[in-house]
C-alpha cells in the first residue's frame, strides 16, 4: 500500500507540474495585467496541434516544442495587441470577445485537425522507465516534467522580481499612467507579457500532448484547470500557482484512487472553500 501511496503522490505531482506550466502563463496575464483571456485554452490547443505537425514533419520533438510555443506566443501577442489592449479595463467585453474567439478557434481546429487524438513521440531517452527501487518503475518523462515546471517557476519568479522588465511589469499593473510618464510604453510591455504567457500555454500543449494527449475539448479543460489553480492559489502569484496546481493535481489523483466517482467534485469543493474563506487565494499576489 505504501507503494501505491508513493506512486499516486508522484502522479499527483506530475499532473500538478503540467497544470502549473499552463496556469503560470495564465496567472501572469490574468493576475498581473488584469486582462481576462478566456481564449487561453485555445492557445494551449493551437500550440499542441501545430507542434505536433512540426514534430511529425521533422521527427524532432524539440522543434515541436519550440514551434508550439512560438505559434501560441505569436497568437497571444496578436490577440493582446489587436483585441485585448483596446478593451483595457472592460472585463466583460474582454471575457465575451475571448470566449467567442475560443469557440471559433475550437471549430477551426476541429475542421483542420479532425477529432482524432494526437500523442507526441518524445526522444527515446525520455520514454525510458526510471527504476525507483522498491516502488517499481516510473516514466522518465514525468520526472522531467516535474523538473521542467520547477525550472519555469523559478525562471518566472526571478524574471519578475530581479529584472528591470519584471519591475516595469509590476509597476505597470499598479499604475499604468505613472509608468508611461517615466518613459515606458505599457501597451508594448503588456504585449511582451502576453507573448510570454501564451508561449507557456503552447509549450504546455506540447508537453501535455506528450505526457498525456491532445484532442478536441482539451482547450476548455485546461482553461478550467488554469482558472481553478489561479483562483485557489491567488491571482498573479507564481508561488500561488504552484500551491494551487499541487493541490488540484494531488486531489485529482488521490481522489481517483480512493473515491473515483467524486474526484472531480473534490477539486471544486476546494475552490468553493477557498473562495468562501480566503477569496484572495492561498498566496497573496505580488501586484
Amino acid at each position: 500500500m505504501l507503494k501505491l501511496a508513493v506512486l499516486s503522490l508522484l502522479n499527483g505531482i506530475s499532473v500538478a507540474a503540467l497544470y502549473f506550466i499552463v496556469a503560470s502563463g495564465f496567472t501572469v496575464t490574468f493576475g498581473l495585467m488584469r486582462t481576462i483571456n478566456l481564449a487561453y485554452g485555445s492557445l494551449f490547443l493551437i500550440g499542441g496541434y501545430v507542434g505536433y505537425q512540426v514534430g511529425d514533419l521533422t521527427r524532432n520533438w524539440y522543434l515541436a516544442m519550440i514551434a508550439g510555443s512560438a505559434i501560441a506566443g505569436l497568437s497571444g501577442a496578436v490577440l493582446q495587441w489587436g483585441v485585448l489592449d483596446r478593451l483595457r479595463g472592460q472585463d466583460m467585453r474582454q471575457a465575451l470577445v475571448t470566449i467567442g474567439l475560443s469557440i471559433v478557434a475550437a471549430d477551426v481546429l476541429l475542421a483542420v485537425f479532425g477529432g482524432l487524438t494526437y500523442q507526441f513521440t518524445p526522444p527515446d531517452w525520455m520514454q525510458a522507465t526510471v527504476s525507483l527501487g522498491v516502488f517499481g518503475g516510473y516514466p522518465a518523462f514525468r520526472l522531467l516534467l516535474i523538473a521542467l515546471s520547477l525550472f519555469i517557476g523559478v525562471f518566472i519568479w526571478a524574471g519578475l522580481t530581479c529584472t528591470r522588465v519584471g519591475l516595469a511589469i509590476r509597476a505597470g499593473v499598479d499604475d499604468r499612467e505613472m509608468l508611461s510618464a517615466i518613459g515606458v510604453n505599457p501597451s508594448r510591455l503588456f504585449v511582451i507579457v502576453a507573448t510570454c504567457g501564451s508561449a507557456l500555454a503552447g509549450l504546455a500543449g506540447v508537453i501535455g500532448g506528450t505526457a498525456l494527449s491532445i484532442s478536441p475539448g482539451e482547450d476548455s479543460r485546461y482553461l478550467l484547470a488554469s482558472l481553478v489553480v489561479t483562483i485557489v492559489g491567488g491571482m498573479g502569484s507564481i508561488a500561488g500557482a504552484a500551491v494551487g496546481a499541487l493541490l488540484v493535481g494531488l486531489l485529482e489523483q488521490v481522489g481517483l484512487l480512493y473515491f473515483p466517482n467524486y474526484s472531480i467534485v473534490a477539486v471544486y469543493l476546494v475552490m468553493v472553500g477557498v473562495l468562501a474563506l480566503r477569496p484572495q487565494g492561498l498566496v497573496r499576489g505580488t501586484a
Binding site: K3, L4, L7, S8, N11, G12, V15, L212, S213, G217, R221, E252, Q253, V254, L256, L257, P260
Partner: peptide
C-alpha cells in the same frame, strides 16, 4: 474524460 490513469493502473 480522465487524462491520467496511472493511479488506477497502480
Amino acid at each position: 474524460g480522465t487524462k491520467d490513469y496511472s493511479s488506477v493502473i497502480a
